[in-house]
Amino acid sequence: MPTLPLPSPLISATDLLARLGPSAAWPVLLDCSFDLADPKAGEAAHAKGHLPGARYAHLDRDLSGAKTARGAIDGGRHPLPTREGFAATLTAWGIGPDTPVVAYDNQGGPYAARAWWLLRWLGHSQVAVLDGGLAAWQAAGGPVDLAPCRPEPAATPYPARAPAMPTVSASLLQASPAALLVIDARAPERFRGDVEPLDAQAGHIPGARNRFFKDNIGADGRFLPADALKKAFAAFGTPAERIVHQCGSGVTACHNLLAMEAAGLTGSALYPGSWSEWSSDPERAVARG
């Protein structure tokens, strides 16, 4: 039977369960679980239990590109993959341009949001994030599988089409600081510059505002209702098309992009290099407090 179009950008566990019936057109599932402090932890957790048929998407290997010789100065700690490289990854996972894809993780959605954004960036419309991740799936009675997935590559290579999601560079932010509002997804103490466990300097981009990505979800790990998200982002007083999202390395910023999309606020951009790139250049201004 044909697969119904996916809701966008979030899908509930009960809705996903209803779609995983006796059909050859199941959504492709991507387990994006990850731990920045232990890059092997997500893959190890995947081996102990995942949604049936889920491919494992590793943040460093699959959802990021190679770092440049200049390191965090160019592209940050998690540079975007090349469009050709990510298209080849999708092909290897058996994903074509019309394949429904559902991404999830077990950390509140930041890594699944990165996969969602990358697919949208490549022009893929049929992609959603499992709201509440693995915990919501299990709470809804969804089965967990231990078997490794060995997908058949797609018959036709995925096309590396023109970017379908906007990005901005550090040079553009420096050239037009008043034209854009930067929203920083890091924890408040990192935004203020009280601590900095990962990057070259503590602080934030001058003029940036803080929206900790974890504020997008409730105690149950699911995203807040659309009207609550809309109210939170509308409070910044800036149209979506003039908002730029950043974080430490361009990953959790995608969570805020996803939240805005869920609220019906479309058109904001990602600064992929984020604070890891910005702070690595001593000539760039830094604010604290």
Rank of each mutant, 00 (worst) to 15 (best):
M1E: 10
P2R: 06
P2A: 09
L4M: 08
P5I: 07
P7C: 00
S8N: 10
P9T: 01
S12W: 07
S12R: 14
A13Y: 06
A13V: 01
T14S: 14
D15F: 05
A18Y: 01
L20I: 07
P22Y: 00
A24R: 13
A25K: 11
W26G: 09
C32M: 09
F34L: 09
D38P: 05
A41P: 04
A45W: 10
H50S: 12
H50M: 10
Y56R: 09
A57N: 08
A57G: 13
R61P: 10
L63I: 09
S64D: 02
A66S: 13
K67M: 14
T68L: 13
A69L: 14
A72P: 09
H78Y: 10
H78D: 01
P81V: 08
P81I: 10
T82N: 09
R83K: 14
G85H: 11
G85R: 08
G85N: 10
F86G: 04
A88V: 07
A88L: 09
A88C: 08
T89K: 15
A92E: 15
A92Y: 08
W93K: 10
G96F: 03
P97I: 08
D98T: 15
T99E: 03
P100A: 11
D105A: 12
Q107M: 13
Q107H: 08
G108H: 06
G109L: 05
A115S: 12
A115K: 02
W116G: 02
W117M: 01
L119I: 06
R120I: 04
W121S: 01
W121P: 05
H124F: 05
S125N: 13
S125F: 03
Q126K: 10
V127A: 01
L134H: 11
A135F: 00
W137P: 09
W137V: 03
A140N: 11
A140W: 11
G141I: 04
A147T: 14
C149M: 13
C149V: 13
R150P: 02
P153A: 11
P153C: 12
A155L: 13
A155D: 14
T156D: 12
Y158P: 02
P159T: 02
P159R: 10
A162S: 14
A162Q: 14
P163R: 01
A164V: 06
A164D: 02
S169N: 14
S171Y: 01
L172K: 15
A175W: 12
A179N: 15
I183Y: 02
D184Y: 00
A185D: 03
R186H: 03
R186K: 05
R186G: 01
P188E: 03
G193F: 00
G193D: 04
D194I: 00
V195G: 06
P197L: 10
A200V: 09
Q201M: 05
I205E: 04
R211P: 02
F213C: 04
D215K: 14
I217K: 05
D220P: 06
P225T: 09
K230N: 14
A234N: 15
A234D: 15
T238M: 15
I243T: 00
V244M: 08
V244H: 06
Q246V: 05
G248A: 09
V251E: 04
V251G: 00
A253R: 00
C254S: 06
L258T: 08
M260C: 05
L265W: 01
L265S: 07
Y271F: 15
W275R: 11
S279K: 03
A287H: 14
G289H: 07
